[in-house]
Structure formats: C-alpha cells, structure tokens
Computed example of a mutant assay.
Amino acid sequence: MADDPDVPDFEVPVGLFQDLEDLKAEVTRLSAQVKTLTDGADADAGEAFADDAADAGEEAEDEPQFPPFILLLDPPQYDDELRALIEWVEGVLVPGYLAEPSADARWCHLWFEHPVVIARLHALWLAWQELTDPATCGYTGPSVWHRDHLDPCMRELRPSNGPMAGCTKGEHQIDHRLPGIVPSAWSRAED
C-alpha cells in the first residue's frame, strides 16, 4: 500500500472511518430516493409510471409503501401488525431493556390491552426497524434510536402516573385512565 502513489500515507482515525461509512450509506439511500422520484417525473403524462405499476401487478397498488401506523389499521391488518409487535416487544424489548417493574417503573404484562401503550410501542418498533438497518442509517442508527426513541418512550410509558399506573404485579386495570362522567354545564338536573 505504501508503494501506491494514490493512497495517502497516514492513519485514518476509526471515528472518521465510521463517519465516512455513515455518509456513504446516506448517499446511497438518497440516490435511490432521487432515482425513484425522477423516474416518476420523467414519465410522459404518467404512461411509463402506469406501465411499471401494471407490470408490478395490482397488489402493489393496494399496499402502502411504508408500514402504516397501527391505530389506523382495520381488524385483519391490525391483528397481524399487533402479533408482530408483540413478538418484538416480548422478544427484544422486555428481555433487553425492561428491568423488574416497580412503583416508579411500571410495566403491565397485558400491555397489549392498553391502546396508548400499543400506539407508543408501535411507533418505537417502526423507528427500531429503520434505525437498526445499516444500509439506511449507517453505524449511528442504534444510538439515535436509544436517544431519540427508546428513552423518551419509556419515560412516557413507565412512570407511576403513566398509562399503566393502575397495573401492579398480578393486577391489571385497563380503564384506569378513562375519565369519569363529568356533569355538563349545558344540562340541567331534572326536578
């Protein structure tokens, strides 16, 4: 290598190498995105784009490009997405990140019966899928996921006044956060 005139004669710091790899991954991702966008723009009145869609089959037209948010799904798709989310939570999140529940760090073993918990964990899972793929996020993705997604999510879900506040070991309360009946100022009590 030292005999090659095109190769500089100095040591590359590890951090710089990782930054370069991250930049390469980002350039690759952006190049693919630009190609996708420009291919659609170059189509003459949408003919080429329509031909590509016809070649891909009608199923591709009905499928979203990115996974939709779980609360927007209808029952068959919702059930499949929830099943996959449960697999990830029970297989990755619980054993890897959740310590023993306590009064200050709640966790309900029936978390999937709390809609707000499902919503937050699904968003966390979507971010995890994106940020743990080195092809799209480089080497810093997992760090970003921990800092920007996992930590804030757990701060919202696990406090003693969070969505699982009424759940303790062996007890489960699904409707502990539902508001009670509030008398309306517009209605009058019948005499």
Rank of each mutant, 00 (worst) to 15 (best):
D9G: 00
F10Y: 14
V12T: 09
V12A: 01
P13R: 01
V14H: 12
V14A: 13
V14C: 10
G15T: 03
G15S: 01
G15D: 02
G15C: 09
L16K: 13
L16I: 13
Q18C: 10
D19H: 13
D22T: 00
K24W: 02
E26H: 08
V27Q: 06
V27S: 04
T28M: 08
R29P: 09
R29I: 09
L30N: 07
S31Y: 06
S31W: 08
A32P: 08
Q33D: 13
Q33E: 14
K35C: 11
K35R: 14
K35S: 15
D39N: 14
D39H: 12
G40A: 11
A41P: 00
D42M: 15
D42Y: 15
D42N: 15
D42V: 15
D42S: 15
A45V: 05
A45Q: 10
G46P: 04
A50W: 02
D51V: 11
A53P: 04
A54D: 12
A54R: 14
D55P: 05
A56M: 10
G57N: 03
E59S: 05
E61G: 15
D62V: 09
P64Q: 01
Q65F: 04
F66A: 04
F66I: 10
F66Q: 06
P67K: 02
P67R: 00
I70F: 04
L71W: 00
L72Y: 08
L72S: 13
D74Y: 06
D74K: 04
P75F: 06
P75T: 04
Q77L: 08
Q77W: 00
Y78R: 01
Y78L: 01
D79M: 13
D80C: 14
E81V: 03
E81N: 07
I86N: 07
W88I: 05
W88Q: 07
V89D: 02
G91F: 03
L93A: 12
L93V: 14
V94M: 14
P95T: 08
P95A: 01
P95D: 06
G96N: 05
A99N: 11
A103H: 14
A103D: 15
D104T: 13
A105F: 04
W107Q: 00
C108G: 06
C108V: 11
C108K: 04
H109P: 00
L110P: 10
W111F: 07
F112T: 09
F112W: 12
F112Q: 06
E113T: 14
V116C: 08
V117D: 02
I118R: 04
I118H: 02
R120T: 02
R120V: 01
R120K: 10
H122E: 00
A123K: 13
L124V: 09
L124A: 07
W125A: 06
L126Y: 07
W128Y: 15
